[in-house]
Design a binder for these strands. Structure first.
Length: 424
RNA sequence: GGAGAGAUGGCCGAGCGGUUUAAGGCACCGGUCUUGAAAACCGGCGUACCGAAAGGUACCGUGAGUUCGAAUCUCACUCUCUCCGCCA
């Protein structure tokens, strides 16, 4: 959510900066609601002041019959206040809903562009492997090794679900442990294991609601929603709190499954593990002082990159353009891992800075010192990494001519020293 | 699922229609005293919104209602705790 006062004072500038996201966002409705709200509020509050002082005067008189006409007059005032407050509530609800549907302002360093095609290459790491045979897709490799079973997953659940078995299941568990250990021991994150279902207030704070309800899986109980990312429960750890400046930065890492409806992506990535209704992810979430947010995005992105480096998987870092960043983000770096089976780089992590956008929605604040007013913290998060896609990258990059897959060295201690997944 | 109890400021806790600008205590911050510290004493100490300011308004779990006036009365809901049942 943007600061209402900032929008009011910089209406044209806000409109222009939002326009770089594409689509059309008009703030004419905002101006109208904002003015109506303030005029109703002023009138209502003046009448309340009058009512309060009259009540005090009436209270001092013992014989109420002497002030019967005053009491009658106040009855009028009260009903007028009620009428004003009723209208005010309608206006404020509308204004609030409008504010909740306005996306974040792109960061000044976010490249301006319309689509994915305008994203900017920042750096790349590692060399795509050369094969003296035709490299296979991960679903071919996985099925041949007997570690991925898509057919049975369809039977159990449906399309866009996967069943890992044997070494596949163990590899995924190893990846989760490996990532969590790296982030907790070397990068200073605190591990958390949050709820996988959250309430509507939590989804609203991080920005999934009210606009993207269709992307979420809902339960019969309407109060609970399945998380599409650990960002939601973890960021909400500090919702409606005033943190101490000395506590910042706060860094959490969490493994959770993620549940996404993938509405509107029917044609895309229909085969394999790339796009699933349920997938595992290790997430990084940090709360920082506003002055540190820019540097923190670089650090956090580096922490996600470190996972790929230790796994020896080639990748590149892209700065998303204004037309491609998410609703709540002001700046985003995507890490794209090389996938030989697709002969392309594909997203494996998305690291974003949200400024005070989520903090304002969620009331996450800190005090500069004991005397000063609370200010909003800045929040950031990134995948560190998407576990299913990491499995895909390992299968495709580390495949051998004989159909076996060599396990990256860093992962072997988590697999009882296993060096390869042998071809059956 | 059944029965009961409760929800007040960072914490404890009083208040149960108008002397509450929410008592009192603890914690915290500033000061006096002291060689220093402690103690004692004095003062300060919530959040949000409207306003150029002065100032005003709202908030005692949430939402409605009664009343000239609600932390206080009524209704609904939510959450927490205790016991019973069920359960990994």
């Amino acid at each position: 959510m943007l600061d209402m006062k900032f929008i009011r004072d910089h209406l044209d500038q806000v409109e222009q900066r939002l326009a770089t996201r594409g689509g059309e966002i008009s703030l004419a409705g905002f101006r109208q609601l904002d003015e109506r709200r303030r005029s109703l509020l002023t009138e209502s509050e003046q009448l309340k002041a009058k009512k309060n002082s009259a009540s005090e005067a009436i209270a001092k008189v013992k014989d109420k019959s002497q002030v019967a006409d005053q009491i009658a007059a106040m009855k009028e005032v009260s009903s007028r206040i009620k009428a004003l407050d009723d209208e005010l509530k309608v206006v404020e609800d509308e204004l609030q809903h409008l504010l909740l549907t306005i996306p974040n302002l792109p960061h000044p360093t976010t490249p301006v562009g319309r689509s994915e095609a305008d994203n900017v290459l920042i750096r790349s790491w590692g060399e795509p492997p050369r094969f003296d045979f035709a490299p296979k897709n991960h679903w071919e490799i996985g099925e041949q090794l007997g570690i991925l079973d898509f057919e049975r997953a369809v039977k159990i659940a449906g399309a866009r679900f996967a069943l890992s078995t044997g070494a596949g299941a163990r590899l995924e568990r190893a990846l989760i442990s490996f990532m969590l250990d790296l982030h907790t021991t070397e990068h200073g994150y605190t591990e958390v294991l949050p709820p996988f279902m959250v309430n509507r207030a939590s989804m609203t704070a991080t920005g999934q609601l009210p606009k993207f309800e269709d992307d979420l899986f809902k339960l019969v109980d309407p109060d609970f929603l399945l998380i599409p990312t650990a960002e939601v429960p973890v960021t909400n750890i500090h919702r409606d709190e005033i943190l101490k400046k000395a506590d910042l930065p706060i860094s959490y890492t969490a493994y959770t499954p993620c549940f996404r409806r993938e509405a509107g992506s029917y044609g895309k990535d229909t085969r394999g593990l790339i796009r699933q209704h349920q997938f595992n992810k290790v997430e990084l979430v940090t709360f920082v002082h506003p002055d540190d947010a820019d540097a923190e995005l670089e650090r956090l992105t580096g922490h996600a990159e470190r996972v790929l480096q230790l796994l020896e998987l080639p990748y590149r870092v892209m700065a998303l353009c204004s037309g491609d960043i998410g609703f709540s983000a002001c700046k985003t770096y995507d890490l794209e891992v090389w996938l030989p089976g697709q002969n392309a780089y594909r997203e494996i992590s998305s690291c974003s800075s949200f400024g005070d956008f989520q903090a304002r929605r969620g009331g996450i604040r800190f005090r500069e010192d004991d005397k000063s007013k609370p200010e909003f913290v800045h929040t950031l998060n990134g995948s560190g990494l998407a576990v299913g896609r990491t499995l895909v990258a390992i299968l495709e990059n580390c495949q051998q001519a004989d159909g076996s897959v060599v396990i990256p060295k860093a992962l072997r201690p988590y697999l009882g020293g296993m060096e390869t997944i042998p071809s059956p």
